[in-house]
């Protein structure tokens, strides 16, 4: 299908130049990184910009590297780079596990993590992992740079805190202590699918638990109540029953053609339990390997 909208194409060499273009075109500009969402929107006339600003020529936006106390994912870091990064796999295995569930290799070779969070869809696979790792988003705009916790970056379905003249330049991951975890994803089948529910669980050596969810509420969320309930406890049937009851209050899934809210909620409980189980057994140095499907 051809793209009928006519627009100007810019490939700025710097973030400053990019911000300048965004300031000029405001909501008539769209940023282009991997393009795996944007090009579909252009073809289907969902988006009709006047300017496309391709940030792939801005070298400083690339790469995955240590920056002070953080690991910095440049805005151009693709899911494939994440998966192939030994640091990600060893230090942030939940994010690694989540990245492997995003679309398929041909899309992951192009799609960026930053682009993923900017899409702000409820089913955002990378979100639960970024939440449990307490990621920070670096934003540049005309007034300079600001950093905000990822937890407050997404404000609703397809909405973020980004102003029209701002862009995400990096995602910062604080160094986690010794931990294990899991990302459990529900799709309609074993193949590539958008998450109908996603649950990330992080368990540290002391038994503290973090838990975050996607596709189970208007925006991805981390639940302090669930974490308080599960931390430093033996997760037996009674605790899990309490957790399921709590999930009903904490989550707000919808029914759509992909799944019903009842099934999503039911599965959230099962996924949380299996994620916890996997995280705890991984902590003990037992399987299953990261990347194995847990449901």
């Amino acid at each position: 299908m051809p793209i009928a909208t006519e627009f100007e194409y810019f490939a700025p060499a710097s973030v400053r130049e990019t911000v300048g273009l965004l300031s000029k075109f405001k909501d008539k500009a769209r940023l282009l990184a991997g393009g795996t969402d944007l090009i579909v929107q252009l073809k289907e006339d969902v988006s009709k910009p006047q300017a496309l600003v391709d940030i792939k020529r801005i070298a400083p936006l690339g790469g995955i590297k240590v920056q002070g106390k953080f690991l910095r994912l440049g805005a151009l870091a693709t899911f494939t780079e994440l998966i192939e990064s030994t640091v990600i796999k060893s230090k942030y295995p939940i994010l690694w596990e989540a990245a492997r569930t995003v679309a398929s290799p041909g899309v992951r070779n192009r799609a960026t993590v930053a682009g993923n969070i900017c899409s702000a869809v409820p089913s955002l696979d990378s979100a639960p992992a970024l939440l449990v790792y307490e990621a920070v988003v670096v934003i540049e705009g005309p007034k300079g740079s600001r950093q905000i916790p990822f937890a407050s970056f997404i404000t609703g379905p397809r909405r973020t805190v980004l102003a029209k003249d701002e862009l995400v330049t990096a995602i910062l991951l604080p160094q986690p202590g010794k931990h294990c975890g899991a990302y459990v994803k529900l799709g309609r089948y074993a193949g590539e699918d958008l998450a109908q529910a996603g649950v990330a669980v992080l368990a540290d050596a002391k038994g503290a638990i973090r838990a975050a969810f996607c596709a189970l509420a208007p925006a991805p969320l981390r639940s302090a109540k669930i974490e308080a309930l599960l931390s430093c406890k033996k997760c037996d049937a009674a605790v899990m029953a309490q957790a399921c009851a709590l999930l009903e209050r904490e989550l707000a899934p919808i029914s759509d053609i992909r799944s019903s809210k009842e099934y999503r909620l039911h599965m959230a409980g099962v996924m949380l339990e299996r994620g916890l189980k996997a995280a705890c057994s991984r902590l003990k140095g037992e399987g299953p390997d990261y990347g194995k499907h847990l449901i």
């Binding site: 398929s104 309609r188 089948y189 074993a190 193949g191 590539e192 053609i257 992909r258």
Partner: peptide, 24 residues
Amino acid sequence: MRFDAKGRMLNPNFTDYKIPTVMD
């Protein structure tokens, strides 16, 4: 195939009309 109450097809794409992959 899913249709809404006005007869519009809701999933005319492979994103929501799932055909099997090698994993399936």
